[in-house]
Amino acid sequence: MNIFRLAGDMVHLLSFVVLVLKINATKSCRGISLKTQELYTLVFVCRYLDLFSNFISMYNTTMKIVFLGTSFAILYLMRGHKVIKVTYDREQDTFRYLFLVLPCALLALLIHNAWTPFEVVWTFSIYLEAVAILPQLVLLQRTQNIDNLTGNYVFLLGLYRGLYILNWIYRYFTEPHYIQWIVWISGIVQTILYLDFFYYYIKSWKNNVKLALPS
């Protein structure tokens, strides 16, 4: 495992910590898209179907369990927690799941590495992860007064994908036959979706003003 991959995973992990921290400390999930959280949970469930059948390392297995556990914990906080669930911006979080899930499912049926149920579901998770942030980005644009932790959360998610791209470049040059078109193209699309956000995030940070996305 190279440093980019490890840094990417740690940043990804940190994004969960920041999100749980924000929700717990403020007892509010204002500005957080439940739809994005549900899509991420679906992504992890579909991707880690091999959790018990395909052992790679203790690190991998542990991280997978942590990602799954945290995702479900966040869903519980946003949907089940008495105090927190009333702070959810239901009226603003209107992105339709089907617009994302259906095209990704169709694409996975058409473009995959092998025609097996496991492989198609895994490919679906790769495609879905690339676009799962969209409801969150739309909600962010609608939310006035984005709090710092929400901004940092989205920034960390984007940074994680950027670091994975560096990891793929590194692996391409250091490991023979390491070519993964589906993962690479999806990952690049995913990172591009963040570019606009990055621009405003860095600008607000440099000018020391509160983050606000133009609508």
């Binding site: 395909n54 790679i56 991998n60 997978k64 990602f67 092998a114 492989e119 895994w122 990891n167 993962v183």
Partner: peptide, 10 residues
Amino acid sequence: EIAAAEKDEL
């Protein structure tokens, strides 16, 4: 089998 070896990322 493609599945095992190449799915070592999260």
